[in-house]
Write a protein that binds this DNA or RNA. Structure first.
Lengths: 234, 234
DNA sequence: CGAGGCCTTGATAGAATTCAACGTCCGTGG
DNA sequence: CCACGGACGTTGAATTCTATCAAGGCCTCG
């Protein structure tokens, strides 16, 4: 466990929830924050837990996934550095709709609900950021609904990879996905089984589109993946 | 076209965006509102339009749907009386991610972006309501992602019907769905084709679970539909 | 009465899951 | 150091679901 919390204003300013705030505001935000180091594979909260805090990642990655009885699981999203998570439930029914698991060692920072509400009242920009973030996630979720409704597995998988890489597929170079991904994770993100995901990824690997090495996936030819995502039938 | 706008504070207080406000606040809200009567089948905005106003329905129903090239369409949600719509884009990129079409004659009320932001600053409760509403929709969208990823058509259809009826399926009596629904609408909501939707609904109608008459669907035995939604294999 | 929108239903084809088995890599512990 | 167990990944074959293709019926509105 490292010793000194790297809790400078510039670290806070980089968090998407606090962009655009003044230095004074950031100091206030920092004063109310709780910082924690979280080891790999820790479950940060479980589905159904009462949620009392708003979380953000300074470093590391977290998987947010939902279980629906029968062991059927769906990955809702991956959280990377500078992103917040676990905050929507704060404003709705207070129950986590999904579980959060640390995929790597993480540095996490969090605020109590009361402090967050105080902060929003003091610095309205935070509230606006919150609406923007939740709005963007709603948009993403709706994109996924559309994809699941209208596209076949290959396309969905291509779209999922591009989203993970933060790529639009236009760039020429390789794009490495920063999260450790099992085939099961990939499958649950694209809405398929790990078998189908494995088959398709194998085929793409043979075609030189991607390469994968022990839970690390790299998109070798983003343009090729983009073609699949856009269903350019060649 | 009716003559007098029914724009009393009590009407405003019933809108989900303005619950919990004081009478004075509601008066202010009303003073900035624009009221319109919208005939059936009007397209209120198109996908990709610049969105300048936040809308709410006083009466009627609206379908929000997304088109993804190739004519493939997905119904994002149905908006009924007292619900707001078209407001998320106001806070993100300003472009409508979907189109809104009036399914019935509607009475609609709307606010400009500037007025809405003013109102949120004046009455923070509105901002909180907004976060709650968007949060709830995010939750719903994620539920749909989970269903599309893990459930087969029949179950998804049952879930969609229960959601539309605002039922959890526990009540004994019938539940009428208040929106006029074509088979195509139902299918695009459940992520299937109108053919499959039609087959399944026919089967349920034979089994006495639902009845449908010209775009009006009634759930005759909510508990039966619930069993399907929960996949109780009997 | 005819046209068009909406719905139903049969047959067919194809995609993806499921079932099954095996291979690989890693860390652990004898 | 090597054997072993377990997690993860690959691949073949069979099965099942659902989309697609195709055709026809009903009702409403002009």
């Amino acid at each position: 466990m490292r010793a000194s919390p790297p809790l400078t204003p510039s670290v806070l300013a980089a968090l998407d929830l606090f962009t655009g705030l003044t230095a004074a505001a950031l100091t206030d935000v920092g004063a109310r924050a709780r910082l924690r180091h979280i080891p790999k594979d820790t479950r940060i909260f479980a589905q159904g837990d009462a949620i009392g805090r708003c979380h953000a990642l300074i470093d590391g990655s977290v998987r947010i996934s939902q279980t629906a009885g029968e062991g059927a699981e769906v990955v809702m999203r991956f959280i990377g550095a500078r992103e917040m998570f676990g905050s929507v439930a704060l404003f709705t029914d207070g129950r986590a709709p999904a579980e959060a698991v640390a995929l790597t060692d993480c540095v996490e920072i969090s605020w109590s609900k009361a402090d967050l509400i105080d902060l929003i009242a003091l610095y309205p920009g935070i509230g606006l950021n919150l609406v923007k973030i939740i709005g963007a996630r709603l948009g993403e979720a709706q994109d996924r609904v559309r994809e699941l409704s209208t596209q076949r597995v290959g396309r969905r998988l291509a779209n999922a990879l591009l989203r993970l890489a933060g790529e639009d597929g236009r760039s020429a170079g390789e794009a490495r996905i920063e999260f450790p991904l099992t085939r099961k994770d990939v499958a649950e993100l694209a809405g398929t089984t790990l078998h189908t995901a494995s088959r398709i990824l194998s085929a793409w690997e043979k075609a030189g589109l991607v390469s994968s090495d022990r839970q690390r996936v790299t998109i070798l030819r983003p343009s090729g993946i983009k073609r699949i995502a856009d269903d350019i039938g060649d």
